[in-house]
Amino acid sequence: MTAMPTVSLATLALADSRFPGGGHAHSGGLEEAVHRGTVSGPEQLAEFLHGRLHGAGAQTAVFAAAAAHAAARGVRPDHWSLLDAELEARTPSPAQRAASRAQGRGTLRSGRAAWPSRALDELLATTGSPHHPIVVGVLLGAGASASPTDAASVVAYLSVSGPASAAVRLLGLDPFAANAAVTALRADTERIAAEAARTAGHRPENLPGASSPALDLLAEQHQRHHREEVRLFAS
């Protein structure tokens, strides 16, 4: 690996908040945290994002890297259902599973128009509605346009950029402070992406599992509140 790898356009496009994959309607538990008063300003947002990066971010990074690795080396179609099932098993909250599949479906719809590939078709055929990090990994790995590290970086970044944007919209936070809270996580994000890349070649069942019970509970509570009162975000 070179010291200064070139970032592919696909990597930039997938990490862009303007990418039309349905992500704008998800807050990753932030709306529920705001509702409870857990997050009310930039300091608490920074703490929330730190926890989310090391929980959901690290977990999704592992599977995005593994999917990119698998797509680049070319795997049999049944590999995709195995990978998808292993991420499903590591996501205990049904609400988070649904949010991940909704964004996976949206990203796949956009991705098919932008970066069609046989791996993408096979992923769709074997899983129906795949998890988001696996779609990102396949999109980046299949065209060999990006490395497993890039795929992991994209989903790790999205795990915090989405909630940060939601905080701006829900709390009227200073957008400069919210953005600074995301970029302050540079070292953590790079470490998580590098670690994910190290396990990218593992068999799906041997991939690491990160657990973040608080986020699981926030996601479930968000769904419960949906039925009772106003919620602006889908998760």
Binding site: R18, P20, G23, H24, G106, F233
Partner: peptide, 14 residues
């Protein structure tokens, strides 16, 4: 996600 125009114009996924 608190952005009605985004949902009908920029990102119509949902």
């Amino acid at each position: 996600g608190a952005c009605p125009h985004t949902a009908i114009r920029d990102d119509i996924t949902a």
